[in-house]
Simulated scan of single mutants.
Amino acid sequence: MITTALTIAGSDSGGGAGIQADLKTFAALGVYGTSAITAITAQNTCGVDAVQAVDADVVAAQIRTVASDIPISAAKTGMLFSTDIIRAVAAAVRAANLPFLVVDPVMVATSGDRLLQPDAEASLQNEIIPLATVVTPNLAETEVLTGAKVHTLDDMRAAAEHLVAHGAAAVVVKGGHAMTKATDVFYDGNRMELLESVVVDTTSTHGTGCTFSAAICAYLARGATLLEAVRRAKTYLTGALQNADPIGQGSGPVGHFWNVTHAAD
Rank of each mutant, 00 (worst) to 15 (best):
I128H: 08
I129M: 00
I129A: 00
P130H: 06
A132T: 10
A132W: 03
T133V: 07
V134A: 02
V134L: 08
V135A: 00
T136H: 02
T136C: 09
P137V: 05
E141W: 06
T142W: 02
T142S: 07
E143P: 06
V144T: 14
V144I: 15
V144K: 14
T146H: 05
T146A: 02
G147W: 15
G147V: 12
K149M: 09
V150K: 06
V150C: 13
T152R: 12
T152Q: 09
L153C: 13
L153N: 15
D155A: 10
M156S: 06
M156C: 08
R157K: 15
R157N: 09
R157F: 11
A158K: 06
A158Y: 03
A158F: 01
A158L: 08
A159E: 07
A160H: 03
E161V: 10
E161T: 11
H162E: 07
L163Q: 05
V164S: 02
V164E: 03
A165G: 11
H166M: 10
A169R: 15
V171A: 01
V171K: 00
V172N: 03
V172I: 11
V173E: 01
K174C: 01
G175Y: 04
G175H: 05
G176I: 02
A178G: 01
A178E: 03
A178I: 09
M179N: 09
M179R: 13
T180V: 07
T180K: 06
T180A: 14
K181R: 12
K181P: 00
T183V: 13
